[in-house]
Computed example of a mutant assay.
Amino acid sequence: MSGVRDTLQRLRARLGPGPRSFLAWWGQALATWLPARWRVLLGLTGDRLLFQRQDDQIEMTWLEGSQRHMLARLPATVTPDELRAVLGTRLTDLPRWWLVPSGMALRRRLLMPAAAAERLQDVLKFELDRQTPFTANEACFDARVIGVRTDGQLDVELAAVPMAAFAGGLAQLGALADGMAGADVEDADGVPLGVNLLPESARVTAQAPQRGLHRALAAVAVVAIVFAAWAMLDNRRAAADAFAAQVDGRADAARQVAAQRQQLVDLVAGTTVLNQTSARRPTALEVMDDVTRRLPDNTYLEKLAIEGDRLTLIGFSPEASGLVARLQGSSLWRNPALSGALQPDPRTRMDRFTLTAELLGKQDPSAATAGGANAAGRD
């Protein structure tokens, strides 16, 4: 028993002293504008104590918002009275939950109609035997709504534990098992899912002392703050509304003018680019005519493609290696070259070739002159 007492004394020292009086607590709450501890006492937060069996000890953690704080590892023989004595008023009013290990629970993702949100538990009773190996009378189960899809359906996650395994795991908490307000499931990251597998008949609802008085005082404080803010802002509300209406009227006119101007700029820019592109590039008819005149009669084209400034020729020819020289010197393209190796075709007894060239603009005489000079130099 001395080991239990020593562990609880260390936990008391870690938690620190509680408030000495209600007046001291009330003064601190007013000074710090609704601190976290006041919100806990008023039941406005989801803070709770989580208990989980680890080997021969009970691990106790404090879930504060979304953060878990390790408090202590308690002996398995600890009693509720001993725990209450060491926690004091700082954490003793928090609800106590059993954190079910992740490997014990069976989890399933389901799609439910939006109408099932109000009676999710009743719907799950009929879906449980289809989604799990258990019936509603053989398992402890609950679900959480993860989100709402664009089609209105609910994205739901179901968690279920067989009753026998659930009872055995809860019994490992010893004397603390009878004071649980719920049983949540631990995910892979050690964060509670947000479900409660504990049957409603076994849940213990802990009420903080003087919670009614706390709520009344909090309501008075909130009303006072709201009234002060309303009184301070009321004299500016009419002027702000008039100014907002004036700004909205002018903003609408400015947006219309800006939209019309942008449309005009886009139209002029598009027309200019289209005209420049059309004037700069040779037509497809001109390209095909020049290609036809330059290729020998025993050459057959399988494909002629113009993609941007690139000309591609694919076909068969018995003198494919000499086609590059025949395409040199054109005023419509430059740099003709074979793309890849020649491929003999046993059917036609010709070589299959792929030729590429860079198209020149019709208004690019310097490039055309340079291409012709290069062709002459190579000849």
Results as ranks from 00 to 15, higher is better:
residue 297 D to K: 14
residue 24 A to V: 03
residue 128 L to T: 06
residue 189 D to V: 10
residue 349 R to M: 11
residue 68 R to S: 15
residue 125 K to L: 13
residue 108 R to Y: 00
residue 15 L to D: 08
residue 223 V to P: 06
residue 241 D to K: 13
residue 262 Q to R: 15
residue 23 L to F: 04
residue 129 D to T: 08
residue 270 G to K: 05
residue 126 F to Y: 14
residue 5 R to N: 14
residue 42 L to F: 00
residue 365 P to T: 02
residue 331 S to F: 12
residue 207 Q to L: 15
residue 227 F to W: 08
residue 340 G to R: 07
residue 72 A to E: 12
residue 138 E to C: 02
residue 184 D to T: 00
residue 231 A to M: 08
residue 30 L to G: 07
residue 378 R to Y: 08
residue 358 E to T: 14
residue 213 L to Y: 09
residue 324 V to F: 04
residue 346 P to T: 13
residue 333 W to T: 01
residue 153 Q to G: 06
residue 117 A to R: 10
residue 247 V to G: 02
residue 130 R to F: 03
residue 349 R to C: 03
residue 336 P to E: 06
residue 257 V to D: 13
residue 136 A to R: 01
residue 305 A to H: 02
residue 146 I to W: 03
residue 26 W to F: 04
residue 257 V to R: 14
residue 285 L to M: 14
residue 353 F to T: 05
residue 143 A to F: 04
residue 61 T to E: 06
residue 172 Q to I: 10
residue 357 A to L: 03
residue 107 R to M: 07
residue 218 A to I: 09
residue 250 R to H: 05
residue 155 D to S: 07
residue 60 M to I: 15
residue 254 A to F: 06
residue 61 T to R: 13
residue 99 L to W: 03
residue 8 L to D: 08
residue 1 M to S: 15
residue 199 P to S: 00
residue 289 D to P: 12
residue 171 A to C: 04
residue 243 F to A: 14
residue 135 T to D: 07
residue 372 G to M: 12
residue 234 D to I: 05
residue 2 S to P: 06
residue 241 D to W: 12
residue 259 A to W: 09
residue 221 A to E: 12
residue 103 G to Q: 11
residue 202 A to I: 09
residue 161 V to S: 00
residue 145 V to C: 01
residue 258 A to N: 08
residue 302 E to Y: 03
residue 97 W to S: 06
